[in-house]
Write a protein that binds this DNA or RNA. Structure first.
Length: 180
DNA sequence: GTCCGGATCTTT
DNA sequence: AAGATCCGGACA
């Protein structure tokens, strides 16, 4: 397995979101290393995407998304959960892939089948916001077996009812075997 | 400064 | 179906 490089992320976000399925999110805490297979993702693309945090422009929070691709964008939601995204596309174009679910060997899937759940399990919080996943030692992503397109399920994104017409975009992707 | 709502999850 | 819980963004 090979670590994904910056050029992997410097591409259209929807493609990155699909290609991340089946890849392995690796988290290292001290001597402990956890490998998590990515099973569900969503794309958030630019200021025109009303579901994207950057739709309200460049702010302190969204600054990471405007930065170079291959960095983690971690934010807190509902006062108690964190969500992990990987920044995509060119610098100064705000876009990212939200990782929504992973699977870890020996861990019940229900503990890692939501964005807040696996972040809690992997100890991911805002301290990792802006972390370079193409170089750092705490968090990175390795390539995995390619998922055939017939095994990729496409759907509307979750929890973005406020996003007007953008809520209809089919920018949620999951591996068929793991779809709920 | 104040106010409001959220890319969620758990429990009822 | 509702509660937990708090930060970021909008407005003043």
């Amino acid at each position: 397995m090979k670590r994904l490089t910056r050029s992997f992320y410097r591409r259209p976000t929807v493609g990155v979101a699909k290609n991340l399925l089946g890849c392995f999110l690796v988290r290292k805490i001290g001597r402990k290393m956890i490998r998590a297979k990515i099973t569900e993702t969503e794309a958030y693309v630019g200021e025109e995407d009303l579901a994207c945090h950057a739709s309200r422009g460049r702010t302190a929070r969204t600054e990471t998304m405007y930065g170079a691709p291959g960095h983690a964008y971690v934010y807190m939601i509902y006062g108690m959960y964190h969500c992990l995204n990987i920044v995509t596309e060119q610098k100064n174009f705000p876009a990212a892939v939200l990782i929504r679910a992973v699977e870890i060997d020996g861990v019940p899937h229900r503990e890692t089948d939501g964005p807040g759940k696996f972040c809690r399990f992997l100890g991911i919080d805002r301290k990792l916001n802006g972390f370079d996943v193409t170089e750092g030692e705490k968090l990175w992503i390795e390539s995995g077996a390619k998922i055939a397109s017939k095994n990729i399920r496409t759907a509307k994104r979750i929890g973005v009812d406020y996003a007007k017409h953008c809520k209809e975009y089919l920018w949620r992707f999951s591996i068929a075997d793991y779809s709920k």
